[in-house]
Design a protein around this nucleic acid. Structure first.
Length: 278
RNA sequence: CGUUUUCUGAAGU
């Protein structure tokens, strides 16, 4: 089954979701039944091709099949989607693998992420309520995904509302949450707000990581504050945070665009020293 | 350049 799922992942990643769907049927035929991971991969595939209606339809069918199996209801009537074969695969795997193909939190998070990435924030947000109604509690990833979506659209008010609401739902903001906000603010040229988020991150006991620092490195590279860059690198060294290939790439790209390749070179030397002394 | 079967944050693409 792992082998099949690896194949499905490969097909989805290369834009061959339809072939991946066929593989589900092959699986059922060979008595190796698709599991929740198989379906989540397919949903991810649909989303990355922008085929949200099909992704959502698939989730609905999964949910329905799971429920109908528990309650003895009739299956969803056929003929209202292109999924006849898929439906068969779903039903069989629902019967054979202990309902493990009913949508789980990852399923919904995958959908939310797909919708956010294409700017359909309202639909993504609705899914929070949909999943709750289905008895599945949104988790940290659900909230972080939505917050990233709102930040990308410069809708910081709504992002902040989520940040204050999520603890009430049992999800404390983590380093990803705060880094997401910081990135949004930095890209919108709002350094003060970014630093405020940074402070909140520390206050709440989160430890900044290489992504967090790279976001700041990016900002100061764009505005060409080389002194600040050295300060940041000092700080990173102090806390044992090693710049990675993205940090390097950011510095080179930004300073090169500003025509300061000499500075970029010096900074790169500084960063490679950090890698070697660790 | 992908050792890890599915979801979230940084550059490029």
């Amino acid at each position: 089954c792992v082998t099949y799922n690896t194949l499905i992942k490969g097909l989805c990643r290369t834009g061959k979701v339809d072939e991946a769907c066929q593989l589900l049927c092959v699986m059922t035929e060979s008595k190796c039944f698709p599991d929740i991971i198989s379906f989540n991969l397919i949903i991810h595939g649909f989303c990355s091709e922008g085929r949200f209606d099909e992704a959502i339809m698939l989730v609905k069918e999964m949910a329905w099949t799971g429920r109908s199996h528990e309650n003895g209801n009739d299956p969803l009537p056929l003929g209202q989607s292109n999924f006849h074969k898929l439906e068969q695969a779903i039903k069989i795997s629902a019967e054979m693998s202990n309902y493990c193909c009913t949508p789980n939190v990852v399923t919904y998070n995958t959908l939310i992420n797909g919708l956010c990435k294409s700017g359909k924030l309202e639909r993504a947000y609705e899914l929070i309520h949909v999943m709750e109604a289905a008895g599945i509690a949104p988790n940290l990833v659900s909230y972080n995904t939505l917050i990233a979506g709102f930040c990308k659209s410069n809708r910081f008010e709504e992002a902040n509302i989520l940040v204050t609401e999520m603890p009430k739902r049992g999800c404390s903001p983590d380093v990803v949450t705060y880094s997401t906000l910081m990135n949004g603010f930095c890209k919108a040229n709002r350094l003060n707000d970014a630093l405020k988020s940074f402070g909140e991150m520390l206050d709440n006991g989160c430890v900044p990581d290489v992504v967090t620092y790279t976001i700041l490195v990016d900002y100061f590279s764009v505005i060409g504050e080389v002194n600040k860059l050295y300060e940041l690198l000092d700080k990173m060294e102090e806390v044992g945070c090693i710049p990675n290939h993205v940090t390097h790439s950011v510095v080179v790209d930004r300073l090169q665009k500003a025509g300061r390749t000499d500075e970029a070179e010096k900074l790169l030397n500084r960063m490679t020293k950090m890698r070697h002394s660790s």
